[in-house]
Write a protein that binds this DNA or RNA. Structure first.
Lengths: 210, 210
DNA sequence: GTCTATAAATGGATAGAC
DNA sequence: GTCTATCCATTTATAGAC
């Protein structure tokens, strides 16, 4: 039963953080929602930061898994597609992390370092994929352009949910269209593609918007 | 003297919000820093939200001023340059707004609507500039590409400071290089420029990075 | 306009019984 | 493992004197 409660605390915390934003969810709220006492919650976790840390570790693990690069062959457009899907779904499932990213990281040095590492990995991954496309002859861009675009890819991906939330203030639980975010990232790469692939991507992306 | 105190409260609040993040600065902290009593602060402003609202109004005004489009002629690359400078400097001066953007907006419907309006304006402005460049024959992009790029410009601009902060965790008050942010935005437009202007921009931007 | 004092509420966290 | 009770610190906000 111990394992059970410990796990349920994490699940409920995640759901509440995502729904209301981490700063607006207290340990008391979580215990209340679970129907357990605050004391019990503090038996299982040292403090709120501990809970956040555990959730963050799972988030990091899933992002890491999503960013493995196909080995033994050059990456193609479909690989980008799949990776973006996995990454965006992960960010959606743990959207509380990005909602108050700077504030959360400011309170915990370890998370700060780990998150910087995630961004570095994402950006490096984008560079690798674009180099692969260049080597395959379907993308043309200078080293500087690749570097700058990789940064923009990581940035747009990391903050798309925030951008969408503030640009289209929605009532409460309305679902978000992750496809739009993926599309925006794709559009960062598109202008560097050979005409044929650019068109191919544009039709793919166009269909994706509805 | 009343006017004085009222104004000083705003100035000090802004400085503290920027330095420590709005969630970490209480009305008591502000009064303390100013050497006045909490009661006095509440004489001048209804509550913390009121202070934030006043600061936000000034921010919005400055952004609006920065986004005026040159009239009577088509915009050129130098216009983008200037606009980006003004916008980034404004965002830097009021960086607390973006640091905890989603949380701040979630607490105040009016700010939410106003911020959505700012983003719309920024994005529309980017569309107008790109159309101008297209009309002048120095940019080539489809309507869809312009639309998507305009969104990405607004997004990268709005969250560049956050991205930079989490990517390069810096010790405290170290200055941020706004030029890098401007560069990243420029790189969103570059691939659509005619070869001559693309090179021109690349050298400009390259020099900009030191 | 400004102060002191304090109420009222909340959040984080612990002690000790069961 | 879990609960009740409670403490301590913080934060927002107000009352009333000067």
């Amino acid at each position: 039963m111990a394992r059970q409660t410990r796990e349920r605390i994490l699940e409920t915390s995640l759901a509440m953080f995502n729904a209301q934003g981490e700063p607006n969810v207290t340990t008391n709220h979580i215990a209340d929602e679970l129907g357990i006492s605050p004391g019990n919650l503090y038996y299982h976790y040292r403090n709120k930061d501990d809970i956040i840390g555990q959730l963050f570790a799972r988030y990091e693990q899933r992002i890491d898994d999503a960013l493995v690069v196909p080995d033994g062959r050059l990456p193609n457009l479909e690989d980008i597609w799949l990776q973006l899907h996995l990454v965006f779904e992960c960010m959606w499932d743990y959207r509380f992390v990005h909602r108050d990213l700077v504030d959360i990281l400011s309170r915990n040095r370890k998370l700060r370092l780990h998150y910087a590492r995630i961004l570095r990995r994402a950006s490096d991954n984008a560079v690798a994929v674009m180099r692969g496309l260049a080597a395959a002859g379907i993308l043309r861009a200078s080293a500087d352009e690749i570097r700058a675009t990789a940064d923009n890819i990581a940035l747009v991906a990391a903050f798309w949910l925030n951008y969408d939330a503030v640009r289209h203030p929605r009532q409460d639980g309305a679902a978000v269209d992750l496809g739009r975010g993926i599309h925006q990232v794709m559009m960062l790469v598109a202008p560097f593609l050979r005409d044929a692939e650019r068109l191919h991507l544009n039709t793919l992306a166009g269909a994706y918007l509805r």
